[in-house]
C-alpha cells in the first residue's frame, strides 16, 4: 500500500479508528453509561463514513448556484447527508432509550456497574 493511498483515503482511517474505539469501549467497559457512549462513538463513525462518501472532489455543496440551470456546476451528493440525518435521529432515540433503561436499572439494582449487577442477579438466582 503506497503512502499516497494512505493519505488520500484519510477519511476512512478516521472512520476505522473511531469505529474501533467505540467498539472497544462497548465491549470492555462494564459501566452501562460508558457502554452507551461507546455505542454512540461507534454509530458516529458510520455517520462519518456516509457523509464523507457523499463528497465529490472539486464540487460545491449541493445548493443551487445562481443563475440556475446555466453553466456546469459540480455538486456533492446530498443523498448520504439526508440518510444520515435520519440515522442521527435514530441514534438519539437509541441513546435516550438506553439512558432511560440505565436510570431504571440504577433504581432497581442501586448500581450501573455490570459486574455488580451480575453478582446481584447470581445471588437472587441462587436464592430462588
Amino acid at each position: 500500500m503506497s503512502f499516497d493511498l494512505l493519505v488520500s483515503h484519510y477519511n476512512y482511517w478516521i472512520v476505522i479508528f473511531l469505529m474501533m474505539v467505540g467498539f472497544y469501549i462497548l465491549i470492555s467497559r462494564g459501566n452501562l453509561i460508558k457502554k452507551i457512549v461507546g455505542l454512540n462513538v461507534f454509530q458516529t463513525s458510520v455517520f462519518m463514513l456516509y457523509i464523507s462518501m457523499g463528497k465529490v472532489s472539486g464540487a460545491t455543496p449541493p445548493i443551487l448556484v445562481y443563475p440556475y440551470g446555466e453553466g456546469d456546476v459540480l455538486y456533492s451528493n446530498p443523498l448520504p447527508h439526508v440518510l444520515i440525518l435520519t440515522a442521527i435521529v435514530v441514534g438519539i432515540a437509541t441513546t435516550s432509550v438506553g439512558l432511560a433503561l440505565a436510570v431504571r436499572i440504577k433504581e432497581a439494582y442501586g448500581t450501573i456497574e455490570e459486574d455488580e449487577i451480575n453478582a446481584i442477579e447470581a445471588r437472587t438466582e441462587a436464592a430462588e
Binding site: 467498539f23 457502554k35 455505542l39 437509541t94 438506553g98 433503561l101 436499572i105 432497581a108 449487577i117
Partner: peptide
C-alpha cells in the same frame, strides 16, 4: 427485564 432489555439494546444496535 431491565438488564435484558439493555443487553438487547446494545447488541441490537450493534
Amino acid at each position: 427485564a431491565l438488564t435484558s432489555a439493555f443487553r438487547y439494546l446494545i447488541m441490537g444496535s450493534v
